[in-house]
Simulated assay, not measured.
Amino acid sequence: MAAPSGFLNLDLLALSPPGWGGVLLAGFAASLQLAVGGFGLGLLIGIGGAFGKLYGGPILRDLLEVYTTVIRAVPELVLILLLYYAGTDAVNSLLMLVGLPRVDISGLAAGIFVIGVVQGAYSTEVLRGAIKAVPPGPIEAARAYGMSPFKTLRRITLPAMLPYAIPGLSNLWLIATKDTALLAVVGFSELTLVTRQAAGSTKAYMLFYCAAGVMYLTLTLVSNRVIAHIEKRARRGIAGPV
């Protein structure tokens, strides 16, 4: 009997060697860590950037405008190569200037930083538009009642802007999950790189790339369900489409 072809040989997806299933799952977990960390960092940068653009001084607004323009103009692959290598060199150069020894920055930390910087530029614009869409009445009422700016932000502005921000942020999350694949070019062992290694070792290209595609698709479908639930809760009490 002829041996099964690479595409039909599902034993190659076994979790233990000689199967590559465990390796693929480890790569998928690394991709998920990158996406969550990068998206979270980008969200923090975006919140600061949005408020800086809206309420900061002219110098801060100009610097943020340069940041968002450059990041959105340069291809993401070029940014990843630049930030991954130049960013780690810059950190070590600064440490040496102050008399501290060089440090080995983990691939995960560097990857989260790279994706976070890229995501931050887009999050800044998404959140800036969402804040501008908030009706001024509730904010003015909070100020009239003597709320501090921080309390007004926490209790009025951020909850009110969520319905406007969630669609854009959900797209950024899905982009972040796919941007993790670009880190394969710098040798980080995320899902795309380990898939390529498995396919190259076994010559079962169709099997492994289809398996990776199913993992990415599953993540997207689960993310869509979670985002829809969050969006539904955020829009409670809002009549009609936003």
Score class of each variant (00 low, 15 high):
Leu174Ala: 10
Arg154Pro: 00
Ser93Leu: 15
Ala199Leu: 04
Gly48Thr: 09
Phe28Ala: 15
Gly27His: 08
Gly237Glu: 06
Ile166Ala: 02
Leu81Met: 13
Gln197Met: 14
Leu158Gln: 06
Phe28Tyr: 10
Ala228Asn: 11
Ser189Lys: 04
Pro167Ile: 04
Thr192Ser: 12
Gly107Ile: 10
Gly19Asn: 05
Gly49Val: 05
Phe188His: 02
Val226Asn: 00
Ser106Phe: 11
Val66His: 04
Gly6Lys: 02
Ala35Cys: 09
Leu32Lys: 03
Gly99Gln: 06
Asp11Asn: 14
Met215Glu: 06
His229Tyr: 14
Pro149Arg: 01
Asn171Gln: 05
Ile175Cys: 04
Pro163Gln: 06
Ala165Thr: 08
Arg102Trp: 12
Pro241Arg: 11
Leu169Thr: 04
Leu13Val: 03
Ala73Ile: 09
Tyr145Lys: 02
Val222Gln: 07
Ala133Cys: 06
Leu8Arg: 09
Ala142Glu: 00
Thr69Arg: 09
Ala121Glu: 10
Met96Pro: 00
Ile71Asn: 03
Ala212Cys: 10
Ile230Phe: 14
His229Phe: 15
Ser5Val: 07
Arg235Asn: 12
Ala130Gln: 11
Val226Gln: 01
Met147Tyr: 14
Leu162Gly: 07
Ala184Ile: 05
Ala234Trp: 04
Val186Phe: 12
Gly22His: 07
Ile71Thr: 12
Ser148Tyr: 02
Ala198Phe: 11
Glu190Asp: 01
Val103Trp: 11
Arg155Phe: 02
Val134Ile: 07
Thr152Arg: 08
Phe208Thr: 03
Trp173Val: 04
Ile47Lys: 04
Ala144Pro: 08
Leu10Ile: 07
Ile238Phe: 12
Thr220Ile: 09
Ser223Ala: 15
Thr68Gly: 06
Tyr55Glu: 10
Leu54Lys: 06
Ala109Lys: 10
Glu231Pro: 10
Phe150Trp: 15
Leu95His: 00
Gly6Gln: 05
Gln33His: 02
